[in-house]
């Protein structure tokens, strides 16, 4: 069943007709040609499709497009609006925080969302004292980034990139 929705993607407004079954990920990739978010598993098990919905990191593969009419979506491409790389993306290049690059846009979006969460004082599974202030050490970064699988095994460099930006 088709329905018309509006999406604000990386600063551009798009009005498009989608099947109610179309996921946000497929709407971006197949309908709008925004292929920065990747499809690694399509079942919420890898994090490659991570985008920012508003300011929050979410998985576009498990979001129905129709349920996000009017939403503001930022992909890794949209984090570099004026051609200047986002500091996190810059750090990923500097630290070689990727190899094949397929999980990378999701890692970048996830890291940006995660840093905002830490900034807001959100705890994680790695947080010893849930009532204390959050300190983003390596264990915290690893835990908070565990929703983004990287089969190339770039994790140590991803952590290094995030560590640099978080300081």
């Amino acid at each position: 069943m088709d329905t018309t929705i509006t999406l604000h993607v990386d600063g551009a407004e798009h009005t498009l007709t989608v099947d109610t079954r179309t996921t946000l990920l497929d709407a971006l990739r197949d309908r709008l040609g925004v292929t920065s978010p990747k499809k690694g598993c399509d079942h919420g098990q890898c994090g490659s499709c991570t985008v920012l919905l508003g300011d929050r990191r979410i998985l576009a593969c498990l979001a129905l497009a129709v349920a996000h009419d009017g939403a503001r979506v930022t992909t890794a491409a949209g984090l570099a609006p004026d051609g200047e790389l986002h500091p996190l993306a810059r750090a990923m290049v500097d630290h070689d925080g990727f190899q094949c690059g397929y999980c990378t846009p999701g890692q970048v979006c996830s890291a940006v969302g995660m840093l905002a969460e830490a900034e807001a004082g959100w705890p994680s599974h790695a947080t010893r004292d849930l009532t204390a202030a959050t300190e983003l050490d390596d264990a915290e970064i690893r835990e908070r980034m565990s929703g983004n699988l990287c089969r190339c095994g770039a994790y140590p460099n991803i952590v290094a990139a995030i560590r640099e930006v978080s300081r």
């Binding site: 929050r56 990191r57 979410i58 969302g113 969460e117 994680s124 947080t127 849930l130 908070r144 929703g147």
Partner: peptide, 22 residues
Amino acid sequence: RRRYPVLSAALLAGASGQLRNM
């Protein structure tokens, strides 16, 4: 976190940051 830390801890042990946001 203050009054029912076991609930916070259980939630944080589940899924991933992205999934918990959804």
